[in-house]
């Protein structure tokens, strides 16, 4: 039993050491996380799909693959600090609020999101998502310029400005 525990400990330490050697310090800061909000205008009108978007796998699936044109209107890189809301103004003037609630033990981030007109709170008052790092989730359906806004929210992009 003792020997077994020693082996396990040795292995964990070796592996953790290797991992620490290879990982970057900022990746372990747990009370803040980088995020990105990208806004796509999707429409049924003839047009082009930005080639880059066609390679985001979620956008190749129904219902998104039904649109005949897609263009990126806006992209915002933000840093979320726990409990501090960050607001992004959308092309239609509504405000998207994003807030980091909690870092989960499994590495995912619990975030809150809302979309509202300025000083109102009846549009999408609350959305709470436990987001996997690196895989965007989507909030879609707002009508805009004859098309539909598809908002992708990615959590966990590394802060790269050093």
């Amino acid at each position: 039993m003792k020997r077994r525990q020693q082996i396990i400990s040795a292995f964990i330490f070796t592996a953790a050491f290797l991992s620490a050697t290879f990982s970057r310090p900022e990746a372990r800061a747990s009370e803040s996380v980088a995020a990105e909000v990208f806004v796509i205008l999707a429409s049924d009108r003839d047009g082009t799909i930005a080639p880059a978007l066609a390679r985001i796998s979620a956008l190749r699936q129904p219902p998104f693959n039904g649109f005949r044109s897609m263009q990126v209107l806006q992209k915002s890189e933000i840093e979320l600090k726990k409990g501090e809301p960050v607001t992004v103004t959308l092309p239609n003037g509504r405000r998207l609020m994003l807030k980091l609630k909690q870092q989960m033990p499994d590495g995912r981030s619990k975030v809150q999101l809302s979309i509202n007109r300025p000083d109102q709170k009846d549009y999408l008052p609350l959305l709470e998502v436990i987001a996997k790092q690196g895989e965007p989730f989507f909030v879609a359906g707002q009508k805009y310029q004859g098309g539909t806004l598809v908002i992708g929210v990615g959590i966990g992009k590394r802060v790269s400005n050093g």
Binding site: E36, A52, L53, R55, G134, G156, R158
Partner: peptide
């Protein structure tokens, strides 16, 4: 996850923009 997915994803978005 951060390295693999986001480099790819944001590369694509960037390319789209």
């Amino acid at each position: 996850a951060r390295e693999v997915d986001f480099n790819a994803l944001y590369g694509r978005i960037e390319a789209g923009v």
